[in-house]
């Protein structure tokens, strides 16, 4: 697969402004949900993402994989990701 880029496309433009780590969330999470056991990230408020990530990191909240992922992010990084997803929500 090979892409020759001669212009700028909208989805990439949106992701260009995303903070470090945010893009990878979409490997598992959808933004808007649907038939999926993984919670849609776009449905959450910024504070909900921050408190969930912090609880995953300490182990206070049980997890299968999010505990291992959350340990890779600082408080500042988590906050930036949370705010970015919350602000990207349809108003």
């Amino acid at each position: 697969m090979l892409g020759a880029i001669t212009g700028v496309i909208a989805p990439a433009l949106a992701m260009a402004a995303s903070p470090p780590g945010a893009a990878s969330c979409l490997g598992c999470h959808t933004v808007n949900g649907g038939d999926n056991p993984v919670p849609p990230i776009g449905a959450l408020e910024a504070e909900q993402i921050v408190s969930a990530m912090q609880a995953f990191r300490t182990g206070a909240r049980p997890a299968t994989v999010m505990d291992r992922v959350a340990k890779g992010f600082s408080d500042e990084e988590i906050k930036a990701i949370a705010q970015w997803y919350a602000s990207a929500k349809p108003k």
């Binding site: 880029i5 992701m15 470090p20 780590g21 893009a23 990878s24 969330c25 890779g72 992010f73």
Partner: peptide, 18 residues
């Protein structure tokens, strides 16, 4: 995202990947 930055002559920020 980096390609968009480079086309706009901006320096891409250091990323984190999962």
């Amino acid at each position: 995202a980096a390609v968009v930055d480079l086309l706009r002559e901006r320096t891409p920020a250091s990323p984190k990947l999962i």
